[in-house]
Design a protein around this nucleic acid. Structure first.
Lengths: 343, 343
DNA sequence: CCCATGTCCCAAAGCGCTTTGGATAGCGGC
DNA sequence: GCCGCTATCCAAAGCGCTTTGGGACATGGG
């Protein structure tokens, strides 16, 4: 069934050495011989055994993604799927395997150590970084190449990351609203310990300051980004003495919740209340059309996955490459969910 | 850094053979010696090199998930994430690695052949089966253990699968609506070539027949399960001469679209129009509470992942186990989105 | 006292590949 | 005709583990 190098070599009357060199493009092989070998290999669909190859070379030809699942809140971040799909495309075409580890968050550090000790991967992708994320220190110490999707805020040593400019995106979004005359703007943010949430908050606060609006903590929320979370935020906040006229949402799903709240209240989105949401451009939550339903800060997380994977592979293949960083800007896409303040 | 078996053995003044046997629980090792070995191994955090081990044993200790991405419609099925999370939990605790391959759908067959030729996995999970799915034949031919998440309809040889009882679920849901007096019931289904969509359709048609309602093709739609898809279905169908009074949706996301359509039309869900949707119990789309927002046919896809993985591992570890099958029933959970027909 | 029987350990081969260190042969230059 | 190259090929070691096939020693029955 599966043919080995040795068998292939024997069938050609050659040594394994020569066949190996021919297949791996080394120069010391006669052109005619090489051609013969390649032909035979193609014919029997020879593929080198992954494990044997990487045992011999010392490189795993694999990248690890460790996804922690919290036992308290069982959320599997919906954007993981698209990010991983993007990264996976890149790995496949570069001949790398992607290995995924789903582990209880308490065992995450152990998972990394384990991966290293077993020599299972050449590098890892770090997901959903916290404000103060211990993984960066751990992985630098372990000497395992890694790339962070996002950033973390307090590390001494430099590290490699790819992030979107959350601060700028939310600053622009907020500014867009203040220019429409909104002064009561709510921020329905992600979990407080997430780094991206902090950056968005900063951008939001900056824009408020620019518009000489003093922030109101009653208008800022942090939470897991579910639809009911958005719904609750909307229905509760409109009951404030001085309710917000505009909302910034941290994700499309949250925006759905906000919209439902609005509908229940008999209010019209874009007229009575404005909404801007961040849009990761997930395939199953499209926000398209000539005039999209939502005004968004938009950035494809799938594309982020592709780019992050490329960076990580570079890190793996040329260890001297030093820390690589990339900041993607989010587009501010104007849709139907925003308008001048209305009373 | 990473310690090898040989080093560990040397440091103990023992042969690699003995250390290996001790660690793998073979009987021919003195109890005291074994204890000493285990202790030392724990101390230096010894982990056998994955590749070396599986080269020696011939088992990859890894399960593959091949996820095809269509180049035409770039949808990454959102339920993959939860299913994979569930499966991943099982793999981890059983000491298996999960390897993920994201490939263009045209190259899916090649991906499976490649996985086999390289000896990269011990088995694979088959996602999103079509009505007539060629993968079943391919994998049986390749002799690679596999488990289908879902079913396919026309294969001669038996194969292993885990599915939810889509037909029964949608039959019950439809019946629930007919008992409320609904006679114009729309089915907003998944893509036509998907096996699950067909089974749901069958269940729906059965219930209609039971209620002596003749099906109307104008009330049946197939499509990619996005929010706008649901929205369009709602806004267009209410304009029919004899519009539906109830809708069956194939996913939570589609139901969100239906609901938005209703809201736009100024109609109330559960009063003017009833909606039942299938709920995969995704963590970020919760439908809970004393009275959930939606009436649903509910089945946790995460749990399905866990069970499917267990079955696949059994298949891998005891090849004689023969085809394993499991049919999970979906619960009919009554929420606020259904009520008697109203005019 | 001898041999059979365990018990406990080890040397060495092998998994399928890469890679080092030659070996062989052909070639032109002197 | 010999030398030094270069062009081609190969044998063998090694990657880190498991596993086969003993070997050494103690024990106990006859």
């Amino acid at each position: 069934m599966t043919v080995t190098l040795k068998q292939l070599a024997a069938s050609l009357g050659l040594s394994p050495t020569t066949v190996s060199r021919a297949l791996n493009g080394f120069p010391e092989v006669n052109a005619a011989t090489r051609k013969r070998i390649l032909q035979a290999a193609a014919e029997v669909e020879y593929r080198p055994n992954t494990r044997a190859k990487s045992l011999a070379t010392g490189r795993a030809q694999a990248i690890g993604h460790v996804i922690p699942v919290s036992t308290s809140h069982e959320i599997v971040n919906p954007i993981f799927a698209d990010f991983i799909a993007g990264a996976g495309e890149t790995y496949s075409s570069a001949g790398y395997e992607m290995i995924l580890r789903i582990v209880p968050d308490a065992e995450e550090a152990r998972a990394y150590r384990d991966l290293v000790a077993r020599g299972a991967v050449d590098g890892v992708m770090v997901h959903a970084p916290l404000r103060h994320d211990p993984r960066v220190a751990l992985l630098t110490e372990l000497g395992l190449p890694f790339l962070v999707h996002g950033r973390t805020s307090d590390v001494a040593r430099p590290y490699s990351w790819l992030d979107i400019n959350n601060q700028r995106a939310f600053r622009r979004a907020t500014q867009f609203l203040t220019e429409f005359g909104h002064r009561r703007i709510a921020l329905i943010n992600g979990l407080e310990n997430m780094d991206f949430a902090q950056r968005r908050r900063n951008g939001y606060l900056e824009a408020l300051r620019d518009a000489a609006i003093s922030p109101d903590e009653a208008l800022i929320r942090n939470g897991e980004m579910t639809e009911p979370y958005g719904y609750r935020a909307m229905t509760e906040m409109v009951q404030l003495p001085d309710p917000p006229t505009a909302f910034l949402a941290s994700s499309m799903i949250v925006a759905y919740g906000l919209r439902r709240g609005l509908a229940d209240l008999g209010l019209r989105m874009g007229r009575d209340v404005s909404i801007i949401t961040h849009d990761d451009d997930l395939s199953y939550l499209p926000n398209q059309g000539d005039v999209p339903v939502f005004t968004t800060t938009k950035s494809s997380v799938r594309e982020a996955g592709r780019r992050a994977a490329k960076m990580l592979l570079k890190l793996v293949e040329s260890p001297g490459a030093g820390p690589l960083t990339q900041l993607m800007e989010a587009a501010l896409v104007v849709g139907a969910s925003t308008g001048p303040v209305h009373r």
